[in-house]
């Protein structure tokens, strides 16, 4: 991808004023959809995404049911007004692929064998997109699954890193994604040391690859802390003493 303008200034500041190792501001609210078994509203920079989890519940159509485990279903969808030019509401090939990788990123964290013959549905609705929506969606979805009380091995934290002006930067935004050199979304379970999503588009040398991957994993660890805080906030309130005790 050819770059037309400089995306990092002489002081090392990016287009949105961040340093190369800085995450965008992340806000997570748990339990925002009343009817859902678990839900999260996440603001990841300018991304605004709502995730609702329904289940474990009966599987429809019934032939999809598995006798020894739960079926996990995932739908990533962008609202028509979420992007610069209106997005056709029908699911695009991109959305089909993202729904798939999202499901595969979440599945290793879930104890699906605990809910045979049932289904868990994860709905990810992007209200406003700003680059990195799949990572924000995965991070929010894993918190929503925890909020729904699903048995889990770990939370899945996701964050992208990329290459901008030949420098490796954490958590690339929309502008950097479109005009920058490479984008690498990663989902990681810090407690289990397991990478559950890894994609790359754009050219990276061997050293850049290693640096970019390490940067993204560090970003995942930052997101992990925010996820834990969000859950703690809902279930234990704001009391720091309780928080420390739980940790």
């Amino acid at each position: 991808m050819s770059q037309t303008r400089s995306l990092i200034d002489k002081q090392g500041k990016r287009t949105d004023g961040r340093t190369v190792e800085q995450l965008r501001e992340v806000k997570m609210a748990v339990g925002v959809v009343k009817n859902a078994d678990g839900s999260v509203f996440i603001e990841f920079g300018k991304n605004k995404i709502i995730v609702a989890v329904y289940g474990p519940r009966e599987v429809h159509p019934k032939h999809m049911a598995q006798s020894d485990r739960c079926v996990l279903r995932c739908r990533y969808h962008m609202s028509p007004f979420s992007t610069d030019t209106r997005k056709n509401p029908a699911p695009s090939r991109r959305e089909v692929e993202i729904s798939k990788v999202m499901r595969e990123a979440l599945e290793p964290a879930l104890m699906l064998e605990d809910y045979p013959r049932a289904a868990i549905d994860v709905y990810v609705e992007v209200l406003q997109a700003d680059g990195g929506s799949r990572c924000a969606g995965i991070s929010a979805a894993s918190v929503a699954l925890a909020d729904a009380g699903i048995n889990m091995r770990d939370l899945v934290a996701a964050c992208a890193a990329g290459k901008v002006d030949d420098k490796i930067v954490l958590d690339i935004n929309d502008t950097e994604d479109k005009e920058g050199g490479a984008d690498m979304p990663v989902a990681y379970m810090p407690h289990l040391d397991e990478v559950t999503l890894l994609q790359l588009d754009g050219i990276l040398t061997r050293d850049q690859f290693n640096q970019c991957f390490d940067t993204a994993v560090e970003g995942c660890k930052m997101v992990y802390e925010i996820q834990k805080q969000a859950l703690m906030q809902k279930y234990f309130g704001n009391e720091t003493e309780v928080k420390e005790e739980v940790q």
């Binding site: 499901r103 595969e104 790359l200 588009d201 050219i203 990276l204």
Partner: peptide
């Protein structure tokens, strides 16, 4: 140089 990566299927990697 690396140009594209896709992790697939339901498990993870260290």
């Amino acid at each position: 140089c690396y140009a594209a990566i896709q992790k697939g299927f339901t498990g993870g990697f260290t």
